[in-house]
Amino acid sequence: MRPLTEEESKLVFAKLANFIGKNLIQLIDRADEPYCFRLQKDRVYYVSESSMRLGISVARPNLVSLGTCFGKFTKSGKFKLQITALDYLAQYAKYKIWIKPNGEMPFLYGNHVLKAHLGRITEDTPEHQGVVVYSMNDVPLGFGVTARSTVDTRKLDPTAIIVFHQADVGEYLRDEEALF
């Protein structure tokens, strides 16, 4: 376990800022308890300072997980957000999209969101913007990246993709051994 280097922090923050923008400050500068980002076996964990201090005494091979896993660094050095970060993304998301009940299952099986399944979307969402996907009764289901801006979606046909799938809560079942 170690803190992130400056380059790693930049990658992580850039990814997070794509979803939550300025609210990222709320994650770093928390009022309730100091939290920090820690790297352990290529995974980035968002962990409270007290449990980080407890985790120090666990040897590196024995430490499986701590805090909330936000994602991992790939071998080529890119950072990928994981579904486990959804709690924080959903809390601070700037752009949201709600999908109709008939679109929930296709999304939860790992498919992109089609226009036919679009319930509501935040006004003025730009293209290639990170969005959090909700069901119609405001349950966060996952997140992805918009394929078109809100204005452009109006002209599309119903089978066109509007949000590229990145992660969904179905992964808790599908990729159970790879998460955390």
């Binding site: 170690r2 280097t5 930049k10 923050f13 920090c36 980080m52």
Partner: peptide
């Protein structure tokens, strides 16, 4: 690498600096 156990204040400060640069 930085030591794992640093003061949270300084870590917060560096993080915010990175953020403002971004």
């Amino acid at each position: 690498f930085e030591p794992t156990e640093t003061s949270v204040e300084s870590e917060k400060k560096t993080n915010l600096a990175i953020l403002s640069k971004l």
